[in-house]
Design a protein around this nucleic acid. Structure first.
Length: 205
DNA sequence: CTATAGATGCCCT
DNA sequence: GGGCATCTATAGC
């Protein structure tokens, strides 16, 4: 894919990422793993209190401030990795959280990487699940998805994004729950079971 | 299907 | 020390 695709506002890019392919190669002799993006969320650092970049650059969020088309991975809840695609020009801090993928290739290897998943629909249906299933972690922070320099690449096989994607508030956050910045492919069984918190002011006193 | 509790470690104040 | 862009097992319909 072209770098320019990612060099736009995150609210424009996020829904267009639906139905794109994420390819994971190696390292080692393992088979290529492939998944189709079916659920995403937008985080816009400059004016988004829920974004890791809201309070300015730190060691953790540095990749978000870098050039578009790279992967931002972070560790959370003491045990989980999550992956984002950086958008917008260098200097801004926008990113699209990958929330769910539909497995396309490498199913056997993905099943081995996700022993807790009882059904195939649970393999990559969550931001931490998809990282576990594809073997994505901190070693991939900053990987370039355009060149595939670290075995991770974003591909377009011609399947267009849904003309009218489903929309809701974002999942698992406390702040800015009213922003409809989560998109998914309608009726796709691999979308995560997460539900947004009811909108309202942040708890206070 | 829904609801709940517990795991577990890094980041930032 | 508080809080987390989560997941899993278990309990109960």
């Amino acid at each position: 894919m072209d770098r320019g695709f990612f060099d736009r506002d995150v609210l424009e890019v996020a829904p267009l990422l639906l139905n794109k392919l994420l390819l994971k190669r190696g390292p080692g002799p393992g088979p290529d793993l492939l998944g189709r993006i079916v659920e995403v969320e937008a985080y816009r650092g400059s004016d988004d209190p829920a974004s890791h970049a809201y309070r300015g650059p730190t060691a953790r969020n540095a990749v978000m401030f870098g050039p578009p088309g790279r992967l931002y991975t972070y560790f959370t809840y003491g045990m989980h990795w999550c992956a984002n695609i950086v958008t917008g020009p260098e200097g801004t801090a926008e990113a699209v959280l990958l929330r769910a993928l539909a497995p396309v290739a490498g199913l056997e290897a993905i099943r081995r990487a996700r022993p807790a998943a009882r059904r195939d629909r649970d393999l990559l249906s969550g931001p931490a699940r998809l990282c576990q299933g594809l073997g994505i972690d901190g070693g991939h922070n900053g990987a370039d998805l355009v060149t595939g320099d670290r075995g991770l690449q974003l591909l377009d096989d011609g399947v267009p994004p849904p003309p009218v994607p489903e929309v809701s508030g974002r999942v698992g956050i406390r702040l800015a729950t009213d922003r409809p910045w989560r998109w998914w492919v309608p009726d796709n069984p691999h979308v995560s079971p997460g539900r947004p918190r009811p909108p309202g002011p942040a708890p206070e006193g």
